[in-house]
Design a protein around this nucleic acid. Structure first.
Lengths: 135, 135, 135, 135
DNA sequence: GTGGTCTAGACCACA
DNA sequence: GTGGTCTAGACCACG
């Protein structure tokens, strides 16, 4: 579990955690059906409160990425990940708009921005290359 | 001034305002040297708090997009816009990472994401098309 | 024994099990005097914990649906089922209130809700049709 | 605000609160656009923790019944209530199934159950007759 | 003053 | 042991 949190960041800890878990799924390090650490143990590992971990889990569960299994605890949704919903696209566009506006004003070209997107996407995919599974 | 605020959004009003001012600049509707409404009048126009408008202006001034003169009021920085700083790139990558991770998990391909980037960028550029009022 | 458990559900497994046993009785598949599997074997069949099966049995025994004999094991109460007690009606109304409130808010009419009730009731009755094994 | 909580009940306080707010909406006592008390004041009124109130609000917000307005605080969704979604129907059926099974076993007829549904529905609708609005 | 976040410590139902 | 709930007290961003 390679999670790195910036406790000073203005983005909430639970958001950072949720994002990194998603990144873990995207990279293949976490796969559908895989169990996640209990809120308590992960909280202890990360040195944060269990409620903070719980909130991250709840957010991901709400969106359909996780399930709470009565026997196996918290697991990556074994039925696969939710697709590209309209709500998600809206959210994406909204966030992109703000970034794109500033990028444009600062003189970044359309293609430079797109290229940056691609490279970030690649980083995420490759970070888990080989799908190391050591739990 | 074509500013639309969503008071239900989870993004702060001052952020929305700042983003839309940037979009105005990106589209060419606002150009270096152009004056902006006074805090007072813009707040009245938008039906929001003075502090909120002020904060948006402060944020943009801080980043170098605006200048505040005691006499001439608030103007788009006549010396041109700040460029693509390292800090900005970091911020961009950081935000992109979260989005890209979720997009990847949801099955969006690298090129689909890049394409979305491009289209959003275009929208911003085009929204001000024909808005070059004085040349 | 046609029991289907949803380990991801937020309703406890023992509750699901108890409900399905009740449904079995309602449908006629299980009748007063009929024997039920031992805690041990049912737990093995369903792949769940002994405690869980035991709790379901205890709950049903507590309400008077089952009897537990040292020798004959667990049987559907041969003296017949408990009737519509005041306590049960209270419980029913209480649960219905929450559902009805949300249904009403969502625009479901009184008759639509009543009709749904009837259809669910029918499903339960019919699911055991033809299941009268020994007469 | 006529909210009555049973702190001894096994149903969570936040659920009871959410249900009663829904009942308030169903009865017409609360209408789209109406403001709700702040989490702090309502918590003080009810003698419970503000986090508990907050959770109730979050649940209702999540489902689309409430909105958090940056100026007006928490309000009943002014765009109207969510409709009868498939997810809601599933939830309803599931809950009804358990109740209907027990009702049937206890000898309650299909029509008796439906009639109970109707009467509960009526109680909710009528409790707010006249739409008293004293805030 | 609002809601959002985080922490800490506690109890309970469930399995 | 797990997650779910509740409490209490705190800080911060926002408007």
């Amino acid at each position: 579990m390679f999670v790195e949190l910036d406790l000073q960041s203005e983005t909430p800890i639970y958001t950072q955690l949720a994002d990194q878990l998603l990144a873990g799924i995207a990279s293949g390090a976490l796969r559908p059906g895989d169990p996640l650490p209990s809120v308590r143990s992960l909280a202890a590992d990360l040195g944060i409160n269990l409620h903070t971990v719980n909130k991250a889990y709840q957010v991901l569960k709400q969106e359909g990425f996780l399930q709470v299994h009565r026997k196996r605890g918290v697991v990556i949704n074994p039925d696969g990940m939710p697709g590209v919903t309209a709500a998600f696209q809206d959210r994406l566009r909204h966030q992109l708009r703000g970034m794109a506006a500033e990028a444009a004003v600062r003189g970044m070209s359309q293609e430079e921005l797109a290229e940056l997107c691609r490279s970030v996407y690649d980083e995420i995919r490759q970070s888990g290359e080989g799908g190391n599974r050591d739990e």
